[in-house]
Design a protein around this nucleic acid. Structure first.
Lengths: 304, 304
DNA sequence: TTTCCTTACGCCTATCGTAAGCATA
DNA sequence: TATGCTTACGATAGGCGTAAGGAAA
């Protein structure tokens, strides 16, 4: 079978239609060039050039093979460039997991910023709760997660991307809806929709912590994993809920959000990715998100 | 820059993920295979494989480059096959010139027969009068012509494809329209549309010959190059015309065609192509047309 | 006679295979 | 200790360049 060098020789001869000039362009002498063309023709068992000792011209097969040779060489060139870009993290594919709430504000901003700043990196998105993201990161089915911080093993890198206060979500007509701020005592024996200790562990712990030192005991009438599902039940009048401030971005016009008595307890959003970055684009993307975190999380309060 | 051999080495290693087995598949020993991979990586300045002395696996760049390598090698393979086919005349492009009348019956049949029998040969069609076809053949802008025979230079090959009688074309309501056969005398002083001695030289000579030995002199009211244009004038009542029998296939329902007094003077259709067949597909196509001439010219009477 | 592609031939480089080295499970 | 990739090294083959050959205008 022939070699790329022979294709380069042939392409040059086909363009010059003159062995002498082609050899000069290839920084070699005519005889070995002649020989390379002969080797190519022999490997193909096809006569590519018609030599009449005064003029060189392409045969019909040569014309078509020339077009193929050019496109093969271009493909080779592009493959080399692409491989290099991937190694440098300038190109590639990154699969990003995100929670439903992050999907509403942060992910659209991130996508458009990345298309602008990292045009050669493809982003694949997968919505899942924080707990599932941690598993997906471990199994490699996602490269980067946007999660509420959970216990991690050592192979994962974490960065606190944003920090936001908790709010009380309640229907527009509720008796507490006209308050400026909610006190803990307001919620004693109040029907509330709670995060589940499984899929919603982070917020379950956070909300539990709010009442830990007090005598206040809300009634938890339902337990659910995701914020937007909890809000549907709030809208349905089944109870109130304590949710992160970013939930105010979700499309529930019938629900009002009120600050609560503790603004020192905040919900964090972490960027998580593999420390052993066998895909350089992942590091590039993680760096990019961190560098642009101010813009991406403008709506919620930033991490300090 | 790297070579195809190195791509083949890399593809094999990427598939086996084992240098020893890959070397065996490539009919070589491990050390030179290792070296080829190193040379490839060095040429690209990209690490394609992660070697941990116990396992080999692709890097992110290696995965993408593997896909490119496979597709490059496939392209190389296809280019070689195509070049060989073109040399054998099994593939290629043939530009065929044809007259408007041939375009009505013969060309559609030829196209569908060729798509069936010579699927790898692309046919480009160009309608032009016989005279222009001869010039186009000389300049190389068409490869094959379907023409009324004209004087040719020696570099063109000819084959009589079909022979057809001449007919008198006349409007449905004309006084001669009920005759079974037309006599020469019927046309004396009759208004007639004539072929031009320039673009329609072949038929001009043929029709002129019909009256040469007789005392009959039609009145030639117009001179035009092409049969279908002549028939429009006949339909418009401007005169009668003597045309080849294949004109009966043209869509002029208001015109009737009558046999004339001479059935020994026939119009021939020739297949013409370059004798010096620098494009082998041309010879293949010419042979194909000749071999299928019985079927292609079934409507008109075949050449004897 | 000139142009220009091909053939011939010696030198050199590059690649192969064998053998040794070395890291990991 | 066994497996398996890499490094080292000598032999060889293939390709380069110079020089000669040959066909066409």
């Amino acid at each position: 079978m022939f070699e790329l060098f022979q294709l380069r020789c042939f392409v040059t001869v086909a363009e010059e239609l003159h062995f002498g000039r082609a050899a000069a362009r290839l920084f070699m002498t005519q005889p070995p060039l002649s020989r390379q063309i002969q080797l190519l023709e022999h490997a193909l068992s096809v006569k590519l050039l018609e030599r009449t000792s005064r003029a060189v011209r392409l045969t019909a097969a040569g014309q078509v093979f020339y077009a193929d040779a050019v496109s093969i060489l271009r493909h080779v060139e592009q493959a080399a460039v692409l491989a290099s870009r991937i190694e440098k993290g300038e190109a590639g594919r990154v699969t990003i997991g995100f929670t439903a709430v992050a999907g509403y504000e942060l992910i659209p901003k991130l996508i458009s910023a990345a298309q602008e700043g990292l045009p050669n990196i493809d982003i694949v998105l997968r919505e899942m709760v924080s707990k599932d993201q941690m598993e997906a990161l471990a199994s490699g089915s996602i490269d980067i997660g946007l999660v509420r911080p959970l216990a991690t093993d050592g192979s994962l890198q974490q960065y606190p991307l944003a920090r936001e206060p908790l709010m009380l979500a309640l229907p527009r007509g509720h008796r507490l809806a006209r308050r400026k701020r909610i006190a803990a005592g307001d919620l004693h024996q109040e029907a509330m929709i709670m995060y589940s200790p499984d899929d919603g562990k982070y917020f379950f712990d956070l909300v539990t912590g709010l009442f830990a030192a007090s005598e206040v005991h809300p009634r938890y009438v339902q337990q659910l994993g995701q914020t937007h599902t909890i809000l549907s039940l709030v809208r349905g009048g089944l109870g109130l809920a304590i949710v992160p401030a970013s939930a105010m971005g979700l499309p529930y016009p019938e629900i009002v959000f009120k600050p609560i008595w503790r603004d020192d307890i905040t919900a964090q959003l972490h960027l998580v990715w593999h420390a052993e970055h066998h895909n350089p684009a992942v590091t590039t993307m993680a760096d990019f998100v961190i560098r642009h975190s101010a813009h991406l999380t403008a709506q919620v309060s930033r991490a300090g």
